[in-house]
């Protein structure tokens, strides 16, 4: 657990309103994610989780601004770089995101395989262009590897798939270029429990096959994080108030806010 993949160094982010008022959404957050590690981040809506994600991906588009601090992936800083540069050279290849709503991510009038091919086209470098046939081969191979009904799913439009299939397709697409680290931002909160389990199983399949090595998993469901994450960080009002192993956080919370979160959890004795 020594190779640090992602390093966040005293990162603060703020929004600048039209009237020049600053709203500090993320305050002085520092953490590292090592190779093979899954970090869970829990917090209520509006605590700065999503803003943090934008910062981690180097996507600080006004009104969001960096106050101070640095984000490094494999030692390469993402700060003070243009959005185009980050989009072309970092996203999807080094860091990738699994968003919450699969419906908003997939183009409704394109087949899944076309949306997948776009990832390759967007990140092609001069001199190593792939033909459509090669791209298709790679897409089909990857979906086969993930144990999906490759032919049917890739040839469907998003509307023809179930919510679970859509979300799994999005995950397949966003990890096509084998990123180092994946940020999953509430990837299952719109799904029912059974579909949630399917999707999470697939994410771990990808992780165990080495398609990506590390993950940041963001959700407000602590029991889910307990099963998914090695370490859990609790975010409250833009700050990390507690970080520990998932065992520690769930079984022996220290901070008052974490204790409150655990206390408010609805549990069922019949679940064994």
């Amino acid at each position: 657990m020594s190779d640090v993949v992602l390093e966040v160094d005293h990162l603060s982010l703020h929004y600048l309103s039209r009237f020049g008022e600053k709203f500090h959404a993320v305050r002085d957050v520092s953490f590292t994610v090592s190779k093979g590690e899954v970090l869970g981040i829990a917090g209520e809506s509006g605590c700065g989780k999503s803003t943090l994600v934008s910062g981690l991906m180097g996507m600080c588009i006004p009104p969001l601004h960096v106050t101070s601090g640095d984000v490094r992936i494999n030692g390469e800083s993402l700060m003070n770089r243009s959005v185009e540069d980050v989009r072309a050279n970092v996203l999807a290849q080094k860091i990738s995101m699994i968003p919450q709503g699969a419906f908003n991510t997939l183009n409704p009038v394109r087949k899944i395989k076309d949306s997948a091919a776009d990832v390759f086209y967007a990140h092609q470098k001069a001199g190593q262009r792939l033909s459509r046939a090669e791209i298709n081969d790679r897409i089909f191979d990857r979906f086969d590897e993930l144990g999906m009904e490759t032919k049917r799913i890739l040839n469907s439009y998003p509307i023809q798939l179930t919510a679970g299939e859509r979300q799994r397709s999005v995950i397949g697409i966003s990890t096509l270029l084998n990123p180092e680290i994946v940020i999953a931002d509430e990837p299952t909160s719109a799904l029912d429990v059974s579909t949630q389990k399917e999707v999470i199983t697939m994410i771990f399949d990808l992780l165990n096959k080495g398609i990506f090595s590390s993950m940041i998993f963001i959700t407000h469901e602590l029991p889910l994080l307990y099963h998914v994450a090695d370490d859990i960080a609790i975010m409250y009002k833009g700050q990390f108030v507690e970080r520990g192993t998932s065992e520690q956080i769930v079984k022996n919370p220290q901070h008052d806010y974490t204790k409150m979160l655990m206390k408010a959890m609805v549990r069922c004795d019949y679940v064994k």
Partner: peptide, 8 residues
């Protein structure tokens, strides 16, 4: 349904 719930 019981099996699919992530419980601590």
């Amino acid at each position: 349904l019981l099996d699919d719930i992530p419980d601590v």
